[in-house]
Nucleic acid binder design. Structure first.
Lengths: 263, 263
DNA sequence: TTGCTCCTCACGTCACGTGAGGTGGC
DNA sequence: TTGCTCCTCACGTCACGTGAGGTGGC
């Protein structure tokens, strides 16, 4: 025995605007129980209040409509709760990321960035086990964590050993379009040990200018800015991907391609 | 002695995509130092790297472009830092709000909402001191805090006293369009005591169904849903604004207009 | 000379909001 | 019968992203 209400009443009961309700109808997120064929008047059931309120809460958390639909359509309750809890976790991570950004912005506003020094280096060809993929800029962190685990796993299973620090090549589209090729590699000397996505790959030799980034990973842009500025000022820039070496938890070497090795 | 770089190089130095840089040029947020008149090629100065990185960080925090422009254009450093710190505070509040929402969503998922009881009441005309305004739904909290302080201040200055709990009328557009008239009032018997925005106002009599909301303010929607559902089921709804009484810090009376008082 | 970088439209996306102009229901 | 509610386009907003089609620079 459900009661039908107009869109206006339903709006007051759910804190959703009339425009939003019509939009959710259009995109099939929340369909009125009945639509009058002649007038087009929407009728909502009081049974839909809970769903509507859930939608509003999820939208308050900026969950995309498609995801909300997926959550609501998950017929079995367990799957549904899973999906919800997953998004809550994601939100928590977002919160932490935002807090980090706020903190680092505050730090930047207080002290001027330290001027680090650079070094020119000729890197010889690097034999490695690598995974390559097209990666979105903002998904890069998660991708790296995943593939480096995979690479080290493959090496361990083949009883091999890394002959240098982890590294990655970032091609220009990765920065300039926000999505592009990335090659994550672990230097190895041993024989074939490909498995899954991991394959043998010899990284070509390059000349680079190197600056060591020492500090929080979120501030890597500072090092890019400083290093890029120096390379531009000295007019030694060259084509090619930017290379990073993850020396240890604290330090990352950023390698910017240059024309020739100099003093 | 600044060095000029292409849009691509600048992109790599700042982590801003080429598309974003062109957009910021279009809207005047970050103008290249030089644009070749024949080819249209943009040239950025390495001196602009810091500004570009600041822009990216602010955008990561979803600061609107207009606000970023205001911050960057604030010529004097003090004003500028003020504006930035203000936004950081705002972000912190956002964070807290989001955390509250996440928490209350989790709570909702665990226990079913308590079914509260309602009461019919005939409210007689209420003499009051009131402030009325057009208010956005999401700005209502802040607005209320502000105007109730103002109202109590006016009453105190006139050596008057409230004759009942604070209350407010929310007209339909406030919910249905997300922006509408709100009248915040404090019941008073004394004489004229208007000052500033505060004016004498007699609230008309109404018949209402009342449900007491007891719990966090962020869950008020639950009470609206429950109360609205009952009113709809009993088919006693009437036109008019929704009225709230802020009995104490814990409890709010939600008053839904109905046709006649019933048992 | 060949690619690659860079350019400008024009349109798409996401989740609605903003009117305009018109009709239905109590 | 009068307002008020509700309706449907069509377009705007915000911050870019997505091609298409074309040109400039090393």
């Amino acid at each position: 025995v459900d009661t039908l209400v107009t869109i206006g009443e339903f709006s007051r009961m759910t804190y959703l605007t009339v425009k939003a309700l019509r939009h959710y109808h259009d995109v099939g997120l929340l369909e009125p129980i009945d639509v009058d064929p002649s007038s087009g008047y929407r009728r909502y059931s009081t049974d839909q209040v809970a769903a509507a309120q859930a939608i509003r809460r999820f939208r308050d958390l900026d969950m995309p409509i498609d995801q909300i639909r997926a959550v609501l359509e998950a017929s079995d309750g367990a799957t549904r709760n899973q999906a919800i809890l997953q998004h809550l976790e994601y939100m928590q991570q977002q919160l932490e990321r935002t807090q980090l950004t706020v903190a680092s912005l505050q730090a930047l506003l207080e002290h001027a960035p330290t001027t680090a020094s650079i070094e020119y280096r000729s890197i010889t060809p690097t034999r490695s086990l690598a995974i390559r993929d097209t990666v979105r800029f903002d998904a890069a962190d998660a991708w790296c964590t995943e593939v480096f685990a995979e690479l080290h796993d493959a090496i361990k299973r083949a009883r091999g050993a890394a002959s240098g620090p982890d590294g990655a090549l970032y091609f220009n589209d990765f920065f300039e379009r926000g999505e592009g090729e990335v090659i994550a590699f672990v230097p190895v000397d041993g024989d074939a040990m490909q498995s899954g996505r991991a394959e043998r790959y010899e990284i070509a030799a390059t000349n680079v200018a190197v600056m060591i980034h020492d500090g929080p990973f979120g501030d890597l842009d500072q090092t890019y800015g400083a290093l890029g500025t120096i390379v531009a000022e000295r007019n030694v820039g060259a084509a090619g991907p930017i290379r990073e070496h993850y020396v240890d938890d604290e330090r990352t070497e950023v390698c910017w391609p240059v024309t020739v090795s100099q003093t």
